[in-house]
């Protein structure tokens, strides 16, 4: 005759605890693995823009980033940026220089593309369009989400590369040519793969595409 064993109260508690721990670990594993889990994807079609002709949508791994361009501040830089966006030149461009919570940089069209990333030369590539003159402004404050053209050591060497600040950097005021500012989707940029020890990020994240809203 088999004796039916009954679980004690403490055993039941332990069993429930282990089941809960299993469920928690399982879901935590998938949440942590998905770095974009907590990032809200912005749908630009659901937003009313007052100046849609100056709105750019950049799609990255964690969703859309909406950038408002500032042609009044730097007309030539915005013209160059828009031209490259329209041409699709920035699509699949690497975020090759990324400093955690500080800034991300992309736009090397020659050595920083998903099909041809050259770690020795990335950051020195050209667009083939030549350089443009710096358009500096003391009124552009380089707050979180500021978009500006990168340059070489000298001024008037801006080409296609751009960076976006992830924090306020007053040191940059008057140093770089502003292009615009991120108005939605900064959280998606904060999830881009970082590399703080070196000049470039190994196996970097890429821009999926950038397009003009209109």
């Amino acid at each position: 005759m088999k004796k039916k064993l009954k679980a004690s109260f403490s055993e039941k508690i332990l069993f429930i605890f282990l089941i809960s721990l299993g469920i928690f670990s399982f879901s935590f594993f998938f949440i942590v693995k998905n770095k974009c889990f907590f990032v809200e994807n912005i749908d630009p079609n659901k937003i009313q823009f007052s100046n849609p002709q100056n709105i750019v949508v950049m799609n990255v791994e964690c969703g859309n980033v909406i950038i408002e361009l500032l042609p009044d501040l730097s007309p030539n830089a915005v013209k160059r940026f828009k031209y490259l966006v329209k041409k699709g030149s920035y699509n699949h461009s690497a975020f090759y220089r990324v400093v955690k919570d500080t800034f991300i940089q992309a736009g090397d069209l020659e050595y920083g593309n998903i099909d041809n990333i050259n770690y020795y030369k990335v950051g020195s590539g050209k667009s083939g369009l030549g350089t443009i003159k710096s358009e500096l402004s003391k009124n552009f404050l380089f707050e979180e989400g500021s978009v500006a053209l990168a340059r070489e050591d000298e001024f008037n060497t801006e080409d296609s590369e751009f960076f976006i600040t992830l924090k306020k950097i007053p040191l940059y005021i008057g140093e770089y040519t502003p292009v615009g500012k991120v108005i939605y989707g900064l959280d998606a940029l904060k999830k881009i793969k970082t590399g703080t020890k070196v000049e470039y990020v190994l196996r970097p994240d890429f821009i999926n595409y950038i397009k003009l809203l209109n």
Partner: peptide, 11 residues
């Protein structure tokens, strides 16, 4: 290895 790229180094 403590050479860290930051916004000042960038400049």
């Amino acid at each position: 290895n403590s050479l860290k790229a930051d916004e000042i180094f960038n400049l």
